[in-house]
Design a protein around this nucleic acid. Structure first.
Lengths: 311, 311
DNA sequence: ATTATTATCTGACCTAAGTCAGCGACATGA
DNA sequence: TCATGTCGCTGACTTAGGTCAGATAATAAT
């Protein structure tokens, strides 16, 4: 059934190296060395401080200085001292520079279109690329705090709901479920985490504060356990098996602890066995039903914080 | 359902560029510039003629010469004039060179293992990589003539049979079907084509000569139509939709023509609609059953050659 | 046999990329 | 205010990679 995996990986590397080489060459297509094109691109993306760009591209300060000078000589950008700290310099694209940047962008867009147009199932190709990119880029996945109403969060939640609709025999309708209020998943009451891989959302999890305020100021006077709920744990199919769900849970539990919560609860469904196994494996204990949401059939709790012995 | 495809492609490019960069760096890890390492690698892979290597790596003749000299200076290879054509030079690894080559290989193998080990479904990852590599490497797919008993051919046929077993309701058992004799698919009676992408077999097709000899010498005295059969057209799932089947058919028909055949026939099955559509779209005409093989239920013929009007 | 072609080699040259030490302007904490 | 550190700039240098015009020798074509 299988051919040698190593040979297949080599073939992949070769195909991709050639493509990347062609990509580099297309950068050169506008008569500018790669380094200068990369700097132009970074500034076009929104980087402004010289030291940030240097960091992002991994360039030596001397080299960076020369590249900036050459672009400045072409009239593509201007540099001005930072107002707050006159040692730092701010680089901004001129109109010509902006035009040049968009020229590069449209060049790369048309490459992308050409690639997709030569395949009968662009969706399948994209899914395969997502999978590969997730594995290769595992170490560069960032877990960020986001407003649950922002674009990335809404994207994740949409994917989450449509996955539930596929998995549950009876389907899934958000309006029938307890949809947490966005304000409950924003500090200081809660938090909403999104895992980003080079800007693409790959997973999320929410911490929903209970009705009562969870202001950290209350920490000292806390006699009764402070309760919060974990909601909306989702990982993109492309990124499954990389331990991302565990990372999300670890982070959200840490934040819950910082926010002063001691008791966490969550509801889930036996149609999501990966999630159930993860909860079981990471210290969650099954408890009785604690709400009347029609969808969940599994309920868990976990006590967190520095003194987990207190019941 | 979808996020911006361009953003996803960018993410893929970024992930892959980083990986390729790391790969380049791992090449550099043995204190040798990338160019020299690539030459060493090419020779280790089996390339011997200098001009072939230059072609394969896309190097200038002057640069190539210098790289060879530097590797020779390190004692990693020797060059000798080609016996048949003393202008050409043959490069061969010394023992030290062979050792160095295997060191690079095991370095890249361990990278591969690390990559696969961090994913729970290496098969799915490999399939995704195959798909991406096939699309990116479409232009580098070579259609080669092979002995139908060679490793690549046997691999293709195995995949072909197991695909038939999946597709046919009653399954598929080669021993019940007319399995063509290998000798019938070798020149001058026939041919067997394998499509290779950087060494990985992605598709095949056979031309099976009829019982009577099809020696080109008979061309002039040919009164009766010379018949041959197309067999075993298969394309890897990773490479479907790229027009590879059409390329294979075009090539095999050309070769059939060169071998002096004027009438081609084939049998197929309605469970393989892509194939049936391809035949219909490229000039094949449905005919009556011409054998008693239990599996096919569709039969086609096509007249080829410079004078297709003769019936 | 003469001519054209091909494969490789050599020397001269170029660019991109990167490293390093030191300089000047500025910022900051004691 | 003064020592110390930071940021960006400059000049000098190195390496890798690549181009180009012959030179040389062998081969193929006429």
């Amino acid at each position: 059934m299988t051919h040698d995996p190593i040979a297949r990986l080599r073939r992949f590397n070769r195909a991709v190296t050639t493509e990347v080489g062609a990509l580099d060459h297309s950068f050169l297509g506008r008569g500018r060395p790669l380094g200068a094109a990369r700097v132009l691109n970074a500034i076009g993306q929104g980087f402004t401080e010289v030291s940030e760009i240097r960091d992002y591209l991994g360039l030596d300060s001397g080299l960076m200085s020369r590249l900036l000078r050459s672009l400045e000589g072409e009239g593509l950008l201007t540099t001005t001292p930072d107002e707050a700290d006159a040692r730092r310099r701010i680089a901004r694209l001129t109109e010509a520079g902006q035009a040049e940047f968009t020229a590069y962008e449209s060049l790369s867009d048309s490459r992308a279109e050409a690639l997709f147009s030569r395949h009968p199932k662009p969706q399948a190709l994209l899914a395969a690329m997502d999978l590969v990119a997730s594995v290769l880029g595992r170490d560069r996945i960032l877990i960020t705090e986001q407003d649950p109403r922002c674009q990335a969060a809404v994207f994740c939640l949409g994917e989450y709901y449509s996955e539930l609709a596929r998995r549950f025999e009876r389907g899934f309708d958000v309006s029938l479920s307890c949809d947490p209020d966005a304000a409950d998943m924003i500090r200081p009451r809660g938090v909403f985490l999104v895992a980003l891989s080079d800007g693409l959302p790959l997973g999320c999890v929410g911490l929903k504060g209970s009705g009562a305020s969870a202001d950290p100021m209350d920490l000292d006077q806390a006699d009764s356990p402070r309760k919060a709920e974990i909601k909306r744990l989702w990982v993109s199919p492309a990124a499954r098996g990389l331990g991302l769900a565990r990372d999300l849970m670890t982070r959200v539990e840490e934040i819950a602890c910082d926010l002063g919560y001691t008791h966490l609860r969550l509801d889930t469904n036996s149609a999501l066995p990966e999630a159930v196994n993860l909860y079981r494996a990471s210290g969650w204990v099954e408890i009785d039903r604690f709400n009347d949401d029609p969808y969940p059939d599994f309920f868990f709790e976990k006590k967190i914080g520095r003194s987990p012995g207190v019941s």
